[in-house]
Design a protein around this nucleic acid. Structure first.
Lengths: 208, 208, 208, 208
DNA sequence: GATGAATGAGATTTCATTCAT
DNA sequence: TATGAATGAAATCTCATTCAT
């Protein structure tokens, strides 16, 4: 599959077309011919490069998801405060959406939220993300920065659930978009998950 | 639709059968005949009571979702601390899952997470839930209990995203279930969202 | 089936409702429940009086068609000029349409022109009409009023074909309706079929 | 749709098979698979070439009907006596039936007489034929060959009604077929419509 | 007579996938 | 590589008819 130089690279053409078609019509509502038409290639060529319609989506998902897993691993490996680590992950995801909203829409809507179909297929990959984030939380707990009474797994879940909901809101126009909103959202996610919604209860804290 | 006398009430029979079939096979993977078979009625009776397969799912979703919206409205109307309000909502949802996990699986997987199909159809109902929770947050901000710098809408989203992720975890066996886990989960959700993941900074700050 | 006095006579109610429904929606496009609804009776009552949906249409057709056959026989039995005989038949059919256009629409559209379905079933009755008219033509030929070189069967066919086309034109709004048009149409049919479209070349020529 | 090379041309194969199946079983009584079987192709190929079962019939009808409209236009444009014009049209239709009785059966039974379904769809095309014939009649009236008191529209209707009834008679075996009958029928149609059924009333005319 | 819930056979259409060229 | 004709399984929905009450 490695293509050194060459010209059009029809395979890439098909993948990029698939992103637009999946985002516009949804995976199930589109036909393979829609992808071929969008890419400007013949029907059967999709099957020359991909074993099935499913494989097209699998490829799109894995390409991006693995980049994200790699990013999380790199972030985790660095000696940073937990807020900065979670901030870097949030930043990566938000920027991914900002850079290619169609692709993120497809990944969220057709894979991670599609619990009965592709979400099932890629459960392992999705779980991997949870676990990597869980490790970050565990370290923060060991450092005494995060409460020990909230299990790392649960914390990772809350963090990821918040981000996924945020993207879903953007995807369906339920939340405002634009440069300033994207940047602010990064801060909001971290502040909400780490600091919580409550004001700092100084009195109580000093008492307890 | 109100059926006074007792008797079999085939309509209810069909709805209950549909919950089991949808939970087991998924909405798209099951045929209408699967529902009829599960209910022990003839094929066409499903169409006697429901205009389409879609309407069966719509009915199941709305029946339950409206109960939840009502619960949130009631909770909101009471003079309780915000933690107790959010706790009551969390409790209701967790108990809904505990009481009828199949129904909640169908609602979450086939509707609220099915962004491209039924999630779209019921966007209004889903949004309503967000807004009601948002109002609770707004009041807590006005009382000075919640930070004013995190918009109520965002806070509601984080709260709902955390719960949905929790249920999704249970549904797909990614998180442990059982009485004690259900009860603990209620506390975890509220503690995480309200208190945040970080240890109380003030105390530490004074110490260090 | 003879109902002496009594009240509503649901059977008649159903037949009359069926005429309206068949005329409005067409036989195939309507459901038995549409007829029941239009008649204001319960679903199953249609099956109490009629063995099938088909039988409802059969009944409507035969009721009316037999009246027409009887009329043709009576006309034929009288010592009238052929133009008056054909005029009487035309008049009966046109008046039937004038009096109950829905019923005639159903008979024409759903039976006599429905060559593949009810036209087939009632071929015998339809043929009977042809033959009776053919006999009228034969007598006119024997009297020397009608040309002997045009077979009576063909002549009957031309006569009937013209009338059916006329009604079809009314039914589908292709021809103007109203009292004067109905009366004029009677004259036109007879004049066209008997006198032909050409100006009387011989007589006129000699005169002019 | 133009297919230069030779080869099987499955599309034509399907159309020809459809004619046979529609003629044999009727449009509604046959299934798409019957057409595919008759053509010796797979089920879905019918849908590769035609959007629906309806479109197959539409195509068959329009192909033939447009040829007829063209013929009528050509005939009308020539400087011929009206009897020859109407004779040419009659001849074309009768020969169409002689050459491909199945196709004409389908066109008559399933379209022009199917007032509630395809007759409705193709009302415009059918009307066009009426109007073209009406123009021929109008010219004959202007030349003094046809009576002015019978409207051209009505005359066209009588002419067309007679031919349609003739074909219907052949289709359902109510009238004798065979070379001599076909040829004689052409003469009968023209003679009946133009000359009428009555003997030339020379004596009467001169007397009155 | 009257009701309407219950039955279930049946047909169109879609579209992923294959394959000959 | 590239094409697109050809394949055929699969599932929703309709509605005439039956029947228990």
């Amino acid at each position: 599959m490695v293509r050194a130089k060459s010209g059009p690279d029809k395979r890439r053409l098909i993948l990029d077309a698939a992103v637009r078609v999946f985002a516009r019509q949804g995976f199930h509502a589109c036909r393979v011919s829609d992808i071929a038409d969008e890419a400007g290639v013949a029907y059967g060529l999709v099957y020359h490069y991909f074993a099935s319609k499913d494989e097209v989506l699998d490829t799109l998902f894995l390409e991006r998801w693995n980049v994200m897993l790699e990013l999380i691993r790199e972030v985790d490996a660095q000696p940073l405060p937990v807020r900065e680590k979670l901030g870097a992950i949030t930043s990566f995801i938000v920027d991914s959406y900002r850079h290619d909203p169609d692709l993120m829409k497809v990944i969220i809507v057709e894979v991670t939220r599609a619990a009965n179909s592709f979400g099932q297929t890629h459960l392992g990959q999705i779980r991997e993300a949870y676990e990597l984030i869980g490790e970050i939380v565990t370290k923060a707990q060991e450092e005494g920065v995060f409460k020990p009474e909230i299990e790392a797994r649960f914390a990772a879940m809350a963090f990821y659930g918040t981000i996924e909901q945020l993207l879903t809101g953007w995807i369906f126009g339920l939340r405002p978009q634009g440069e300033e909103h994207f940047e602010r959202a990064k801060w909001l996610v971290v502040e909400t998950v780490c600091g919580g919604l409550e004001t700092s209860v100084v009195g109580e804290a000093s008492v307890s």
